[in-house]
Amino acid sequence: MSLVELKDVTVRQGAQTVLQHVDLSVRSAEILTIVGPNGSGKSTLLRTIIGAIRPTGGQVVRKAGLRIGYVPQKLHIDPTLPLTVRRFLSLPDRVSDDAAARALSHAGAEGVSSQQMASLSGGQFQRVLLARALLSRPDLLILDEATQGLDQPGSAAFYRQIEAVRRDLGCAVLMVSHELHVVMAASDRVICLNGHVCCEGAPEHVASAPEYRALFGTGTQGALALYRHEHNHTHDHAHGTGHAQSHDHKHDKDRAAS
């Protein structure tokens, strides 16, 4: 049985259609990763799943009593708000010192309990966010670009932690990421999103799909192509035949304009 199912979900924000006709389901205990270029609706998709955004069309079906642990992309804490790590872990529900310590150790952030949130390093901060998400004993852990601002070894370590968490706690993991090469190795299933679901399947399958290559480049250069994609928005790679006709991708328009 799937934990969350999206049926033909469309989300419009103002005049813009961010997601159209998205079908997706998250199964228990799987690691599902969503990849896609900037502005492809990844964060919108996650926020629709947690209920922060109401879809314009279609429906989101959550398993009854589903517990979600959410790790946001970034968390700004106003400097006027004093907050220790220990206090943060008790939001919104109070947890025992024992449970808090266990969650911190699961997330790989032992011994920071009495520190102020504002004093943590980027890596520690993300791990504390993860620890808090684990405390609700989630069936589904949702991470939105959780490694943003971490360096390469830092984010690789973070993903190993996620795998360990899944192994130890048995929760499903739904995450969004840019770091394809790291993420794809750690995922059971990958969905490539660009306003709609371009393609989905096992990581190897998606990596070789023409739709995916159209967005991210080919072969082992995928990660590099993505990097270029983000920084100067050029799309000088070859398209899979037939792909350009079947989908209305942004990059097609970009190329036509250049």
Partner: peptide, 9 residues
Amino acid sequence: LNPDLAHAA
């Protein structure tokens, strides 16, 4: 702290 955290909870 963050409206999305509240939604998820």
